[in-house]
Amino acid sequence: MSDLDKLDRAILGTLQADGRMPIARLAETVGLSETPCARRLKRLEQEGYIERYRAMLSRRRLGYGVLAYVSVRCAVHDRSLADRFEREVCAIERILSCHNVAGTADYILMVVARDLDDYGTFMRDELRSLPGVTAVESALSLRAVKSEGRLPLP
């Protein structure tokens, strides 16, 4: 992070808000001409500060009315079983994220479903049958207060 100057941070902050911003507008926003701005942007991408660009889709418009945060506990903490669990989780599209965590749960998942019936079927048929799973606890999101926050840039 020490390699980033004020202009680099301005570019990163601006792109977090609008990743599709044309280079001309980005340059104007951060106070550079297009060529130096494009060079800085390319360097930030090459150095890994920008991992990727993506569109944020509306889960509701796509028919996913349920968003659940799921705590998963595993009885056996065997590396090969954990690897199998993680591979299978990564192959399930409706699991948006999976984090191996410390605490009472082993993993926290973010899952989408069309409705509660769909979520119940998913829990019964897929989630509870994943390798090593012994307990599952769900917290259903009622509404998003803050979502996909921007990373702070010191």
Rank of each mutant, 00 (worst) to 15 (best):
E126D: 11
A113Y: 02
A24F: 09
G149F: 10
G132T: 00
Y107S: 03
Y69D: 06
A102I: 08
P154Q: 11
F122H: 01
A102V: 09
L32P: 02
F122N: 00
S141T: 14
A105K: 01
L130T: 09
V89H: 02
L4D: 05
S129I: 09
Y64G: 01
V136N: 04
S141Q: 14
M123R: 10
R143H: 14
E47P: 01
A55Q: 12
H77C: 13
L67E: 10
R25A: 14
R52L: 09
R9I: 02
A17K: 15
V30Q: 01
D5I: 04
L127C: 05
L142V: 09
S58W: 15
T134P: 00
R43C: 08
L7H: 04
G48L: 04
C74G: 02
I11N: 00
R61H: 14
V72C: 02
D18T: 09
L44Q: 07
G63F: 13
A55H: 12
H77D: 15
A139E: 12
D117A: 14
R94Y: 06
G120N: 08
A75R: 10
Y107C: 08
E28F: 05
A135S: 15
M1I: 05
R84C: 10
L96F: 07
Q46N: 12
G19Y: 07
A75K: 05
K146R: 15
A82C: 07
G132K: 01
D18R: 08
G19K: 08
D5P: 00
S97V: 08
L7K: 10
Y119E: 03
L12P: 00
C98D: 07
D3E: 12
M21Y: 02
V111G: 05
L7G: 00
L44G: 01
M123C: 13
I50H: 02
R54N: 00
V70M: 05
Y107G: 04
Q46V: 11
G103S: 12
S147W: 12
S33F: 03
R59F: 06
T104H: 08
D115V: 10
I11K: 00
D115P: 04
A135F: 11
I50E: 03
L44D: 02
A139L: 08
F122Y: 05
L12Y: 02
D125F: 10
V101H: 01
R9Y: 02
E45C: 12
E137N: 14
D117H: 06
L12T: 03
R128C: 11
C37L: 07
A105Y: 08
R20F: 13
T35A: 15
Y119H: 04
L12I: 08
L109T: 04
N100M: 13
V145G: 04
A24W: 07
R43V: 11
